[in-house]
Amino acid sequence: MATRDAVLGYGAAGAVFLALWEAAPRLGWIDGRLLPPFSDVVAALGAMAATATFWQQVQLTLLETLTAFVIALPVGALLGVLVQESRFASLVFKPLIFFVFSIPKSIFLPIFILILGIAFWQKVAFGIFSTVFIVMMTTFSAVESVREDQLRVARSLDASTMQKILFVYLPSMTPVLLEAVRVAMIFNFTGILLAEMYASREGIGNAIGVWGLGFQIKELLAMVLFVSVLAIGFNEAIRYVEAKCEHWRN
């Protein structure tokens, strides 16, 4: 079976990668101080996971990420629909949104700190700012993906506006919106971690920044590993749902 072969393939590639990671520092191919062996990093993660501080940091960062996400996603999606559905708003705001989207968001971080300080809501605000534009842009294509003929069927059945939104627009947009959720989370998580690294006293980003400056590579990599697993897990979960409704697209 193709999927089983693929899974075996991933597994093999992953195993080779981890084996190299383990062997390279041990055999002296790479300086062990810069890249400790995989098993040491896992051990460090295990030790960290036994402390309360670790979970406090994780909890804080996830709370910031989630807060920013549940605000940015509906706001971005709603604004996206409103702009796309209005001719006037499309003409005026779409170019602006594309302009702002192309600017690297990180350069605005100092301004956020000046205005909001370095506590919880600054992270959330920056997370929202990093996310909302990509959500809007994906929503534009989501609205465009709603098929005219399906709307016509709904009209021929005398569906109300609300029924059209709930039973035609929304399901029709779902595959593209899921993509928005997935990509938005990457932008959102990046924004939050960046804000934590740059100016914060707590959170995952802060911990990574501090360990980097203190040359605590093992702990740093352990956290990188943890964040990677988290991010990949979320991404793959959404991709799985996306694949389930792939056939909706045509």
């Binding site: 098929r147 003929d149 399906q150 016509r152 059945l157 005398d158 035609v168 779902t174 045509n250």
Partner: peptide, 20 residues
């Protein structure tokens, strides 16, 4: 004067089924 599926049923060129 407006769509009334109890009086008139419509079949379009593309089946236009909802894929979900």
């Amino acid at each position: 004067t407006k769509p009334d599926p109890t009086r008139v049923g419509v079949v379009f060129q593309d089946a236009s089924l909802f894929p979900w």
